[in-house]
Design a binder for these strands. Structure first.
Lengths: 243, 243
DNA sequence: CGCAGCCTTGACCATTATCAACGCTGGTGG
DNA sequence: CCACCAGCGTTGATAATGGTCAAGGCTGCG
């Protein structure tokens, strides 16, 4: 039986210092360490690049490295035996990939396009955490946030309609873009319709129809295949069931 | 905007000592502390009881207490504005309820039947964790396990059929019963069909039909409304998509 | 410029939700 | 102690959301 090995993300913090080594501008791991000597983290990490569809980690492989995404985007997913895929998350710059517990990776991660990431050895990172309890507390906080997001996604998958799911997705992307400092109304969609479908528990066709319907209702415009402009973000959030 | 506040569970460990105060036989929090002085934890906790449908914590309320369930079962859920409910988890003896980060509870929890629990003050628990890093590491591990279970549930809600969801549910209940030391083939179902439905993203009727179908296929028998006997656990696990 | 892959749209279909009726059961009060 | 009743569960008929299959268009890259 496989040991457990979840993924966690690091969300950027606005008050953080830049990490010169991994080039992320606002990264809470780097921030936590800045106070106690970020040199050390820099020495542990190296910058790696991936091409589109490259595999960062594969479900079932022994857990080794941890990554901070610094550019590009990543899909994290699990598969059923017959090939059905559920994407459990998309990672953007500032997000964290990898788990510290368990023996094997329990989900796969692949690059959506060109990706650069800051790689840590898992054991180094663990040692670092042992020396710096603040880092462990920060990771616990982040994992709790991740769990909260997972509960949101359960509500979405279990109880929302196709259109509500799309509205939720776009609203969430907008929120995350804003947090990263990217424009919140003109979204870049680095994933295909099929990947959005596998994230929302739908099919390509339903996602496509949903996009068309949102456009027809004037909630969004679609300047290009892989970008969306939120024209009525509040109405979209309302449709998403947020408030 | 509400601060994040996820729930985490403590899973029992077989090598743990009993916790005399909260009466849980195998509880990893108690275990972690046994090594360094479980008296202290005992002093912080008090035993509380709830009647059926009592509210343990309510979504949106300021986060205060943490609970270890010692008997009975609990539903943890989130709601949409129009009343649609997604149960994000059921808690059984040995499971942990409450979050250490964030300002407010982000999900509600109610007793399925009579429940007893070991209650801790959140601040006390935090202080305890600061003194005992092992406890924090254990909590991080457990939260990661929780996150993994959440990803399983996403796969279930996004990509499994109604019958596969039911098979997964029963298989998971069996695994958890075994871990608690309860019979793994004769399951107690403390929840209603409607609650199972709200956990699996289905309706009462579909759950009921699914149960009948599993019975017709000889995979289970239904000795009473709230118990299930797994007659072909392996076939059930296969249907669940496990392997 | 052409082709492959992705996206969109349409027609049809299937799974599951909805609506409805009825049966069971456990708790309560006469 | 029994009978009633409210709530839950089951089953059936019908409807709807979203899936499947199919055809054609766009686009970006070689």
């Amino acid at each position: 039986m496989l040991a457990v090995e979840p993924f966690t993300r690091v969300h950027p913090r606005s008050d953080a210092d830049p990490c010169s080594r991994c080039e992320a501008r606002r990264l809470s791991v780097c921030s936590s360490l800045a106070e106690e000597g970020s040199k050390r983290l820099g020495a542990l990490a190296d910058l790696v690049t991936f091409r589109p569809d490259d595999v960062l980690v594969r479900e079932g492989d022994p857990a080794g490295d941890l990554y901070n995404i610094t550019s590009g985007a990543v899909r994290v997913f699990r598969l059923l035996a017959d090939g059905r895929r559920q994407i459990v998350g998309f990672l953007f710059p500032g997000d964290f990939l990898g788990g510290l517990t368990g023996q094997d990776y329990m989900a796969s991660a692949e690059a959506l396009g060109p990706v650069t990431a800051c790689r840590f050895d898992r054991e180094d990172y663990r040692r670092l955490m042992r020396d710096q309890p603040r880092l462990e507390t920060a990771l616990l906080d982040r994992t709790c946030n991740e769990l909260l997001a997972a509960q949101d996604q359960m509500l979405l998958l279990g109880r929302k309609t196709a259109l509500e799911r799309l509205a939720s997705f776009l609203t969430d992307l907008s929120r995350r873009a804003k947090r990263r400092g990217d424009p919140e109304a003109l979204l870049d969609l680095p994933m295909t319709r099929g990947e959005i479908a596998d994230y929302l528990g739908l099919t390509t066709e339903t996602v496509s129809r949903g996009m068309s319907k949102l456009k027809a209702r004037g909630l969004v415009s679609l300047p290009s295949l892989h970008s969306v402009e939120l024209r009525r973000p509040h109405a979209l959030a309302e449709l998403a069931g947020l408030a």
